[in-house]
Design a protein around this nucleic acid. Sequence first.
DNA 1: ATAACAAACGTTATATTATAACATTATATG
DNA 2: CATATAATGTTATAATATAACGTTTGTTAT
Lengths: 130, 130
Amino acid sequence: MAQAQILSKNQQIVLDIIEKAKGPLKAYSILFNVQKKGINAPQQIYRALDKLIEMGKIHKIESKNAFVACRNSNCEISKATAFSICESCEMVDEIIDVKLSKYLSSFSDKKGTKYKRFNLEFFGLCKKCK
Amino acid sequence: MAQAQILSKNQQIVLDIIEKAKGPLKAYSILFNVQKKGINAPQQIYRALDKLIEMGKIHKIESKNAFVACRNSNCEISKATAFSICESCEMVDEIIDVKLSKYLSSFSDKKGTKYKRFNLEFFGLCKKCK
DNA sequence: ATAACAAACGTTATATTATAACATTATATG
DNA sequence: CATATAATGTTATAATATAACGTTTGTTAT
Ligand SMILES: [Zn+2]
Ligand SMILES: [Zn+2]
Ligand SMILES: [Zn+2]
Ligand SMILES: [Zn+2]
Protein backbone atom coordinates (compact mmCIF):
# COMPACT_ATOMS: atom_id res chain seq x y z
CA MET A 1 0.00 0.00 0.00
CA ALA A 2 1.45 3.30 -1.07
CA GLN A 3 1.82 5.84 1.68
CA ALA A 4 -0.62 8.69 1.58
CA GLN A 5 0.96 11.71 -0.02
CA ILE A 6 2.09 14.34 2.40
CA LEU A 7 1.63 17.78 1.00
CA SER A 8 3.81 20.78 1.61
CA LYS A 9 2.35 23.88 3.19
CA ASN A 10 1.60 25.73 -0.02
CA GLN A 11 0.35 22.63 -1.77
CA GLN A 12 -2.10 22.03 1.07
CA ILE A 13 -3.32 25.60 1.08
CA VAL A 14 -3.96 25.54 -2.65
CA LEU A 15 -5.59 22.12 -2.57
CA ASP A 16 -7.89 23.14 0.28
CA ILE A 17 -9.18 26.10 -1.68
CA ILE A 18 -9.75 24.09 -4.82
CA GLU A 19 -11.52 21.33 -2.91
CA LYS A 20 -13.82 23.77 -1.14
CA ALA A 21 -14.73 25.57 -4.34
CA LYS A 22 -18.01 24.82 -6.06
CA GLY A 23 -16.54 25.27 -9.50
CA PRO A 24 -13.26 25.49 -11.32
CA LEU A 25 -10.80 28.06 -10.02
CA LYS A 26 -8.33 30.15 -11.97
CA ALA A 27 -4.78 30.50 -10.80
CA TYR A 28 -5.00 34.20 -10.06
CA SER A 29 -8.28 33.85 -8.23
CA ILE A 30 -6.57 31.28 -6.02
CA LEU A 31 -3.75 33.74 -5.55
CA PHE A 32 -6.08 36.53 -4.43
CA ASN A 33 -7.73 34.11 -2.02
CA VAL A 34 -4.54 33.15 -0.24
CA GLN A 35 -2.79 36.45 0.11
CA LYS A 36 -3.87 36.61 3.73
CA LYS A 37 -2.02 33.32 4.24
CA GLY A 38 1.28 34.80 3.13
CA ILE A 39 1.37 33.67 -0.45
CA ASN A 40 2.11 36.65 -2.62
CA ALA A 41 3.34 35.56 -5.99
CA PRO A 42 1.94 33.64 -8.97
CA GLN A 43 4.94 31.32 -8.93
CA GLN A 44 3.92 29.96 -5.58
CA ILE A 45 0.48 29.11 -6.92
CA TYR A 46 1.68 27.65 -10.19
CA ARG A 47 4.28 25.51 -8.47
CA ALA A 48 1.71 24.08 -6.11
CA LEU A 49 -0.71 23.51 -8.98
CA ASP A 50 1.94 21.67 -10.99
CA LYS A 51 2.70 19.30 -8.14
CA LEU A 52 -0.96 18.71 -7.34
CA ILE A 53 -1.59 17.84 -10.98
CA GLU A 54 1.38 15.47 -10.96
CA MET A 55 -0.06 13.75 -7.90
CA GLY A 56 -3.49 13.52 -9.50
CA LYS A 57 -5.12 15.59 -6.75
CA ILE A 58 -6.40 18.19 -9.18
CA HIS A 59 -6.95 18.54 -12.91
CA LYS A 60 -6.65 21.42 -15.29
CA ILE A 61 -9.68 22.21 -17.42
CA GLU A 62 -7.79 23.16 -20.55
CA SER A 63 -10.58 25.02 -22.28
CA LYS A 64 -10.97 27.28 -19.26
CA ASN A 65 -7.48 27.57 -17.85
CA ALA A 66 -8.94 26.59 -14.54
CA PHE A 67 -8.47 23.88 -11.95
CA VAL A 68 -10.75 21.41 -10.20
CA ALA A 69 -10.21 18.84 -7.49
CA CYS A 70 -10.15 15.23 -8.59
CA ARG A 71 -13.31 13.42 -7.53
CA ASN A 72 -12.18 10.06 -8.82
CA SER A 73 -9.83 7.80 -6.95
CA ASN A 74 -9.45 5.80 -10.13
CA CYS A 75 -8.43 8.28 -12.74
CA GLU A 76 -4.88 6.94 -12.68
CA ILE A 77 -3.00 10.11 -11.88
CA SER A 78 -4.60 12.07 -14.68
CA LYS A 79 -3.91 9.64 -17.46
CA ALA A 80 -7.56 9.35 -18.34
CA THR A 81 -9.71 12.37 -17.63
CA ALA A 82 -13.15 13.40 -18.80
CA PHE A 83 -15.27 16.37 -17.85
CA SER A 84 -18.67 17.81 -18.55
CA ILE A 85 -18.73 21.56 -18.81
CA CYS A 86 -21.83 23.73 -18.74
CA GLU A 87 -21.65 26.48 -21.30
CA SER A 88 -24.06 28.61 -19.37
CA CYS A 89 -23.07 28.49 -15.68
CA GLU A 90 -19.52 27.24 -16.20
CA MET A 91 -20.04 24.32 -13.88
CA VAL A 92 -17.62 21.42 -14.34
CA ASP A 93 -18.13 17.80 -13.35
CA GLU A 94 -15.59 15.04 -13.59
CA ILE A 95 -17.08 12.15 -15.52
CA ILE A 96 -16.41 8.83 -13.90
CA ASP A 97 -17.41 6.12 -16.32
CA VAL A 98 -15.45 2.93 -16.49
CA LYS A 99 -16.74 1.97 -19.91
CA LEU A 100 -15.85 5.30 -21.43
CA SER A 101 -12.48 5.27 -19.75
CA LYS A 102 -11.66 1.77 -20.96
CA TYR A 103 -12.88 2.54 -24.44
CA LEU A 104 -10.63 5.57 -24.73
CA SER A 105 -7.66 4.07 -22.92
CA SER A 106 -7.59 1.21 -25.37
CA PHE A 107 -8.29 3.35 -28.41
CA SER A 108 -5.77 3.06 -31.18
CA ASP A 109 -5.76 5.16 -34.31
CA LYS A 110 -5.75 3.94 -37.88
CA LYS A 111 -2.01 3.38 -37.87
CA GLY A 112 -2.39 1.28 -34.74
CA THR A 113 -0.86 3.84 -32.43
CA LYS A 114 -1.99 3.78 -28.82
CA TYR A 115 -1.80 6.74 -26.52
CA LYS A 116 -0.72 6.90 -22.96
CA ARG A 117 -3.02 9.68 -21.87
CA PHE A 118 -6.15 11.48 -22.90
CA ASN A 119 -8.31 14.38 -21.84
CA LEU A 120 -11.92 14.71 -22.93
CA GLU A 121 -14.13 17.74 -22.46
CA PHE A 122 -17.87 17.62 -23.14
CA PHE A 123 -19.83 20.84 -23.51
CA GLY A 124 -23.53 21.42 -23.10
CA LEU A 125 -26.03 22.59 -20.54
CA CYS A 126 -26.15 21.20 -17.03
CA LYS A 127 -29.42 20.11 -15.46
CA LYS A 128 -29.93 23.45 -13.75
CA CYS A 129 -29.44 25.46 -16.90
CA LYS A 130 -31.53 23.31 -19.18
CA MET B 1 -26.06 22.78 -51.31
CA ALA B 2 -24.59 25.39 -49.06
CA GLN B 3 -22.55 28.06 -50.76
CA ALA B 4 -18.83 27.91 -50.21
CA GLN B 5 -17.77 30.33 -47.52
CA ILE B 6 -16.11 33.44 -48.76
CA LEU B 7 -13.43 34.60 -46.43
CA SER B 8 -12.47 38.16 -45.68
CA LYS B 9 -8.97 39.36 -46.39
CA ASN B 10 -7.57 38.83 -42.91
CA GLN B 11 -9.36 35.55 -42.48
CA GLN B 12 -7.83 34.27 -45.72
CA ILE B 13 -4.34 35.41 -44.75
CA VAL B 14 -4.54 33.69 -41.39
CA LEU B 15 -6.07 30.53 -42.81
CA ASP B 16 -3.40 30.29 -45.52
CA ILE B 17 -0.65 30.39 -42.94
CA ILE B 18 -2.28 27.79 -40.72
CA GLU B 19 -2.94 25.49 -43.66
CA LYS B 20 0.63 25.72 -44.88
CA ALA B 21 2.10 25.03 -41.47
CA LYS B 22 3.36 21.58 -40.60
CA GLY B 23 2.24 21.83 -37.02
CA PRO B 24 0.02 23.85 -34.73
CA LEU B 25 0.60 27.59 -34.75
CA LYS B 26 0.30 30.03 -31.88
CA ALA B 27 -1.52 33.30 -32.32
CA TYR B 28 1.53 35.47 -31.85
CA SER B 29 3.64 33.41 -34.19
CA ILE B 30 0.94 33.92 -36.81
CA LEU B 31 1.06 37.62 -36.03
CA PHE B 32 4.83 37.82 -36.54
CA ASN B 33 4.42 35.97 -39.82
CA VAL B 34 1.92 38.41 -41.29
CA GLN B 35 3.34 41.75 -40.28
CA LYS B 36 4.70 42.16 -43.79
CA LYS B 37 1.13 41.85 -45.02
CA GLY B 38 -0.02 44.82 -43.00
CA ILE B 39 -1.48 43.07 -39.98
CA ASN B 40 -0.04 44.66 -36.89
CA ALA B 41 -2.19 43.86 -33.89
CA PRO B 42 -3.17 40.75 -31.95
CA GLN B 43 -6.84 41.70 -32.28
CA GLN B 44 -6.71 41.23 -36.00
CA ILE B 45 -5.36 37.73 -35.55
CA TYR B 46 -7.72 36.74 -32.79
CA ARG B 47 -10.73 38.04 -34.69
CA ALA B 48 -9.80 36.02 -37.74
CA LEU B 49 -9.11 32.96 -35.60
CA ASP B 50 -12.51 33.24 -33.92
CA LYS B 51 -14.34 33.38 -37.21
CA LEU B 52 -12.34 30.54 -38.72
CA ILE B 53 -13.14 28.40 -35.69
CA GLU B 54 -16.83 29.29 -36.00
CA MET B 55 -16.74 28.21 -39.63
CA GLY B 56 -14.96 24.97 -38.74
CA LYS B 57 -11.94 25.80 -40.89
CA ILE B 58 -9.53 25.55 -37.99
CA HIS B 59 -9.49 24.13 -34.49
CA LYS B 60 -7.85 25.26 -31.29
CA ILE B 61 -5.66 22.73 -29.53
CA GLU B 62 -6.62 23.71 -26.02
CA SER B 63 -3.71 22.10 -24.23
CA LYS B 64 -1.29 24.05 -26.38
CA ASN B 65 -3.08 27.32 -27.07
CA ALA B 66 -2.39 26.71 -30.72
CA PHE B 67 -4.33 26.35 -33.91
CA VAL B 68 -4.49 23.77 -36.69
CA ALA B 69 -6.36 23.57 -39.97
CA CYS B 70 -9.28 21.20 -40.07
CA ARG B 71 -8.48 18.12 -42.12
CA ASN B 72 -11.92 16.63 -41.81
CA SER B 73 -14.83 17.72 -43.93
CA ASN B 74 -17.08 15.86 -41.54
CA CYS B 75 -16.29 17.22 -38.14
CA GLU B 76 -19.53 19.16 -38.09
CA ILE B 77 -18.21 22.65 -37.55
CA SER B 78 -16.15 21.66 -34.55
CA LYS B 79 -18.86 19.92 -32.60
CA ALA B 80 -16.89 16.71 -32.43
CA THR B 81 -13.12 17.02 -32.48
CA ALA B 82 -10.34 14.63 -31.57
CA PHE B 83 -6.59 15.02 -31.85
CA SER B 84 -3.44 13.06 -31.25
CA ILE B 85 -0.61 15.06 -29.83
CA CYS B 86 3.00 13.97 -29.67
CA GLU B 87 4.58 14.86 -26.36
CA SER B 88 8.02 14.87 -27.87
CA CYS B 89 7.86 16.73 -31.20
CA GLU B 90 4.55 18.53 -30.57
CA MET B 91 3.05 17.23 -33.77
CA VAL B 92 -0.74 17.25 -33.87
CA ASP B 93 -3.01 15.11 -36.03
CA GLU B 94 -6.75 15.37 -36.30
CA ILE B 95 -8.28 11.99 -35.64
CA ILE B 96 -10.97 11.10 -38.12
CA ASP B 97 -12.74 8.04 -36.86
CA VAL B 98 -16.44 7.65 -37.42
CA LYS B 99 -16.87 5.02 -34.74
CA LEU B 100 -15.15 7.13 -32.11
CA SER B 101 -17.05 10.19 -33.17
CA LYS B 102 -20.41 8.42 -33.03
CA TYR B 103 -19.58 6.84 -29.71
CA LEU B 104 -18.77 10.19 -28.14
CA SER B 105 -21.51 12.16 -29.86
CA SER B 106 -24.09 9.79 -28.46
CA PHE B 107 -22.49 9.52 -25.04
CA SER B 108 -24.74 10.37 -22.15
CA ASP B 109 -23.63 10.59 -18.56
CA LYS B 110 -25.10 8.74 -15.60
CA LYS B 111 -27.89 11.27 -15.22
CA GLY B 112 -28.77 10.75 -18.87
CA THR B 113 -27.46 14.12 -19.98
CA LYS B 114 -26.23 14.40 -23.52
CA TYR B 115 -23.78 16.97 -24.72
CA LYS B 116 -23.78 19.01 -27.85
CA ARG B 117 -20.06 19.21 -28.34
CA PHE B 118 -16.87 17.52 -27.28
CA ASN B 119 -13.13 17.88 -27.68
CA LEU B 120 -10.76 15.00 -27.11
CA GLU B 121 -6.99 15.21 -26.93
CA PHE B 122 -4.81 12.09 -26.89
CA PHE B 123 -1.18 12.31 -25.82
CA GLY B 124 1.67 9.98 -26.60
CA LEU B 125 4.54 9.57 -28.99
CA CYS B 126 4.11 9.82 -32.72
CA LYS B 127 5.60 7.22 -35.05
CA LYS B 128 8.71 9.28 -35.66
CA CYS B 129 9.44 9.79 -31.99
CA LYS B 130 8.82 6.25 -30.87
C1' DA C 1 -28.88 54.85 -56.16
C1' DT C 2 -29.09 55.49 -51.43
C1' DA C 3 -30.34 54.67 -46.83
C1' DA C 4 -29.80 51.44 -43.25
C1' DC C 5 -27.61 47.74 -41.27
C1' DA C 6 -24.12 44.27 -40.36
C1' DA C 7 -19.51 42.55 -40.76
C1' DA C 8 -14.83 43.35 -40.95
C1' DC C 9 -11.02 46.38 -40.08
C1' DG C 10 -7.34 49.34 -37.70
C1' DT C 11 -5.50 51.00 -33.54
C1' DT C 12 -4.27 51.83 -28.75
C1' DA C 13 -4.41 50.24 -24.42
C1' DT C 14 -4.85 46.82 -20.95
C1' DA C 15 -6.09 42.40 -18.74
C1' DT C 16 -5.02 37.68 -17.90
C1' DT C 17 -2.21 33.64 -17.76
C1' DA C 18 2.30 31.70 -17.16
C1' DT C 19 7.42 31.25 -16.72
C1' DA C 20 12.51 32.69 -15.86
C1' DA C 21 15.96 33.33 -12.74
C1' DC C 22 18.17 33.36 -8.42
C1' DA C 23 18.85 33.33 -3.58
C1' DT C 24 17.14 30.99 0.68
C1' DT C 25 15.09 27.60 3.77
C1' DA C 26 13.21 23.13 5.03
C1' DT C 27 13.20 18.07 4.65
C1' DA C 28 14.91 13.66 3.77
C1' DT C 29 18.77 10.21 3.51
C1' DG C 30 23.10 7.92 4.52
C1' DC D 1 26.68 15.70 10.61
C1' DA D 2 27.05 16.05 5.48
C1' DT D 3 24.87 16.09 1.43
C1' DA D 4 21.21 16.10 -1.72
C1' DT D 5 16.56 17.13 -2.95
C1' DA D 6 12.34 19.54 -2.61
C1' DA D 7 9.97 23.54 -1.45
C1' DT D 8 9.90 28.46 -0.70
C1' DG D 9 10.15 33.62 -1.40
C1' DT D 10 10.84 37.28 -4.47
C1' DT D 11 11.42 40.24 -8.52
C1' DA D 12 10.94 40.61 -13.12
C1' DT D 13 9.16 39.51 -17.54
C1' DA D 14 7.07 36.66 -21.23
C1' DA D 15 3.08 34.93 -23.56
C1' DT D 16 -1.77 34.82 -24.34
C1' DA D 17 -6.07 37.27 -24.87
C1' DT D 18 -9.65 40.98 -24.65
C1' DA D 19 -11.78 45.88 -24.20
C1' DA D 20 -13.07 49.85 -26.32
C1' DC D 21 -13.65 53.04 -29.96
C1' DG D 22 -13.91 54.86 -34.37
C1' DT D 23 -13.67 53.82 -39.47
C1' DT D 24 -14.36 51.23 -43.63
C1' DT D 25 -16.45 47.82 -46.44
C1' DG D 26 -20.06 44.89 -47.95
C1' DT D 27 -25.20 43.58 -48.08
C1' DT D 28 -30.00 44.31 -48.26
C1' DA D 29 -34.15 46.72 -48.96
C1' DT D 30 -36.61 50.50 -50.61
ZN1 LIG E 1 -9.70 12.73 -11.47
ZN1 LIG F 1 -25.24 25.21 -15.96
ZN1 LIG G 1 -11.90 19.20 -38.10
ZN1 LIG H 1 6.71 13.14 -32.31
